[in-house]
């Protein structure tokens, strides 16, 4: 149990040197590695926690945005429904207006068609009346009837207005104007003389009319004074149906 003081001292030095060696080559590198690994784990955990916090923040933000979006959606839906109601009312009003206009237009067209139809019916009725009248007058046309018509014409001549008489006189003032009397039947001399006298007396000048025959008159007389015509014949009366039908009255 002796102590060798040299060994004692050297062992102290050796142990302190071993402490330094192990501190440099074992404890420090291993602890640094462990510390780095721990820091890495803590860093990863911190990043994970930060990611979790960000995710939660995003979740909260998303929920807020979702709620806000729902509110906006509800408000937009209400506004849309109101706008839709207004638009529908406006469109209904437009459609009703268009319907009214279309109805009015249709009524106008219908009225026009009715007038056209009535006019056409009247025209055809007048045409039928003319054909009937012409046929009837053709059967009634006789020299006696023509003589009676001449009487009526001469009576009408006496009732002409002064302005019309003055127009006839102005027409006879033209040297190229001629007086022509056309009848459906041959007039006898007495009747021709009465006609000549009546015209000359009414116009204030002696006339020498030229008498002609036109069976198309059916019965009656036509007196041509230049551009003027005085006539009373059945053909003209029958043609009056056509004129009435063409003018709608």
């Amino acid at each position: 149990m002796n102590i060798d003081w040299t060994t004692f001292a050297l062992e102290i030095v050796n142990f302190l040197a071993l402490v330094w060696i192990l501190q440099r080559f074992l404890y420090r590198p291993v602890m640094d590695t462990l510390r780095a690994r721990r820091e890495g784990v803590e860093r990863t955990l911190a990043e994970a926690r930060a990611s979790e916090q960000r995710a939660r923040a995003l979740q909260v933000q998303f929920e807020d945005r979702l709620a806000e979006w729902n509110r906006e959606k509800t408000a937009a839906r209400v506004a849309l429904e109101a706008e839709f109601g207004r638009e529908r009312a406006r469109r209904l009003e437009e459609i009703e207006q268009e319907c009214r206009e279309e109805k009015a237009r249709h009524a106008a067209v219908e009225a026009h068609h009715a007038r056209e139809l009535q006019r056409d019916l009247e025209t055809r009725a007048l045409a039928q009346a003319r054909r009937f009248t012409a046929a009837l007058l053709a059967r009634l046309a006789t020299p006696a009837l023509e003589e009676r018509l001449v009487e009526l014409l001469l009576a009408d001549l006496g009732s002409l207005g002064e302005q019309q008489v003055r127009g006839l006189r102005d027409a006879l003032a033209d040297p190229a104007a001629s007086v022509r009397v056309t009848s459906a039947f041959v007039l006898d001399e007495a009747l021709r003389a009465r006609i000549t006298d009546a015209l000359s007396e009414r116009l204030g000048t002696r006339l020498s009319p030229r008498f002609e025959q036109d069976p198309a008159l059916l019965a009656g007389l036509r007196v041509s004074l230049g551009p003027w015509h005085l006539q009373l014949d059945l053909a003209d009366e029958a043609n009056a149906f056509d004129g009435a039908a063409r003018h709608g009255d």
């Binding site: 149990m1 002796n2 102590i3 060798d4 003081w5 060994t7 004692f8 001292a9 062992e11 102290i12 142990f15 302190l16």
Partner: peptide
């Protein structure tokens, strides 16, 4: 080495 009292004494002193 720990079978030598010099070593154990050195360690104990340390």
């Amino acid at each position: 080495p720990t079978g030598d009292l010099s070593t154990t004494a050195a360690l104990a002193v340390l």
